[in-house]
């Protein structure tokens, strides 16, 4: 359905459609809408990263440069997905930023233990969310050096 090559560099696992919409709006306001793609839960995220099931098309579903991960999701939650990603040689290098409503100290410790690269509590105000998206872009795409995009890579 999409003729131009995808530039989705950021993959977010988020099950809540409202939050998806609010986050997409924030990306749109930063002019980064095209960078973002959503999956609905941990299982879909793993399918996407492995180009399985609906995501078998490697051209349309290239490995993301950055993963945003909600923690509380149905089927496979963010914690489980994080653990799998950080255990797998081919995926480990992709930075994972936890973006969740959870403020629990236990989750913070657990996520860093499992190898999360950042832990961010979802901002309550849209304005803060927009600023956060700007900061994420600045940090992960301008300041830090990441391993080259995996776009040429075939399974």
């Amino acid at each position: 359905m999409n003729m131009k090559p995808p530039i989705a560099k950021i993959l977010m696992a988020e099950d809540d459609p409202d939050d998806q919409l609010l986050i997409r709006e924030a990306f749109r306001e930063c002019g980064m809408e095209d960078y973002l793609r959503f999956v609905e839960n941990g299982e879909e995220l793993m399918d996407y990263l492995h180009n399985r099931e609906d995501y078998a098309d490697v051209i349309n579903f290239p490995k993301p440069v950055l993963i945003l991960l909600d923690l509380n999701m149905p089927r496979k939650d963010g914690r489980e997905a994080l653990e799998e990603i950080k255990k797998e040689a081919g995926l480990r290098a992709i930075p994972v930023v936890i973006l969740t409503t959870s403020k629990s100290e236990r989750d913070v410790v657990l996520c860093y233990d499992l190898g999360a690269n950042s832990f961010i509590t979802k901002p309550e105000k849209q304005e803060t969310l927009v600023n956060l998206v700007r900061d994420l872009e600045k940090y992960w795409f301008k300041i830090v050096e990441l391993p080259g995009p995996a776009e040429g890579k075939t399974a």
């Binding site: 409202d18 939050d19 609010l22 105000k125 849209q126 304005e127």
Partner: peptide
């Protein structure tokens, strides 16, 4: 969410 969409 009511607050967020209102803000939006």
């Amino acid at each position: 969410k009511i607050q967020s969409f209102g803000e939006l």
